[in-house]
Design a protein around this nucleic acid. Sequence first.
DNA 1: CAGGAAATTGACGCAACGTCATTATTGTGC
DNA 2: GCACAATAATGACGTTGCGTCAATTTCCTG
Lengths: 205, 205
Amino acid sequence: MSDAAIADPVGKRERTKVANRQAILAAARRVFAQLGYEAATVRDIIRGTDLASGTFYNYFRSKEEVFEALADDGARRFKPLLRAAREQARSFTEYLNGAFRAYFQFIVEDNALEGRPIEERRPHVRLDTPEMMAVYQEVRQGLEAAIARGAAPRVDADYLACACIGIAQEVGSAMLRRAPADIVAAAEFAAGLILKGLDGAPRKS
Amino acid sequence: MSDAAIADPVGKRERTKVANRQAILAAARRVFAQLGYEAATVRDIIRGTDLASGTFYNYFRSKEEVFEALADDGARRFKPLLRAAREQARSFTEYLNGAFRAYFQFIVEDNALEGRPIEERRPHVRLDTPEMMAVYQEVRQGLEAAIARGAAPRVDADYLACACIGIAQEVGSAMLRRAPADIVAAAEFAAGLILKGLDGAPRKS
DNA sequence: CAGGAAATTGACGCAACGTCATTATTGTGC
DNA sequence: GCACAATAATGACGTTGCGTCAATTTCCTG
């Protein structure tokens, strides 16, 4: 068989452990989408797998921790895209545009699952997981690099990174509410705003 | 007696109803600050008042609803400040600066309570309560008015409002993490960024 | 002041939680 | 291969917090 593809965990122990963890995360994703985060229970999640209730606690301490793991996974998947946008860009303008596009593309795909409205899927938990911090760092480093080589003015990089993230989140949410989501337009708006402020944002057609 | 000060609810029924509601909200504020939002239970909150557990459910359906009421209260208190910033401003630049200052001032005061780190006090969540929507509307109307009279370019007002809110939230959080919080500097950064993009943001000292 | 409307109370049944002794599975040394 | 240790899965169980509701208290009204 072509199990060579997944060569990393050799022993059966290791393999089922990874598989179980993934099964729980997949079930949680479905359950959150269907019942909403608040209404979902640990039992609902574990029922979505072929595991017993006690087994859940071998992998996560709580529903919150499962959500954090999902968020962490998302951040882990997204970070390389952001890095790629940075490396492929030939200018600061291109970098910003590419980064915003990558994010908007990402959230469109991530919210493709059918079920309850997006707001109810999200939890009442904090999202400052390690991988989320890493994304912030990547954003900040990208901006600091641009500042260092003179491609951007010497502004407060922390505030700037936060502003970019805030814009991405809020404009991204607004974009998702529209049908159909226009990723390119949203990215141009966000990047234009950062670069030149209101004068740089696209005029409304 | 000088009950003339609070003349609105005349009957004792009405008065205790308002008082109880306020007591629950005040207790919830304390409990969320002390235990963190997730760890807090309805019982913890009600224990912070001199009411019985059942009484809680005469006022709120759940812990979540209490939090929403707190958020709603905040939004209700904040909206007039935003409106005032709009009416007092003599230019669009002044409006933006005043609005951001008002918000940053507001969150500084709102987070003055001692206790757990701010992130654990509240769900890091998009709260679409009625009063929150009203704040969004106020922001949007302020921006649309500026666009209408030519003080700002004709950009997508929805996206712009979302971008302003996103910047306010994220830069505001970053500001709170710093000691001491410099409201004026943060507002200048945010307003400068909106107005002229990176070129408009203050250079780092 | 009587009678009724409205709010408060806390005990109760229930649902979900998290634990843990037991059982099953996998890895290891001979 | 087999025995034995190490590790993980299981689900029943005690615990905790939830939301309800009949009984009780408080307030209003005529």
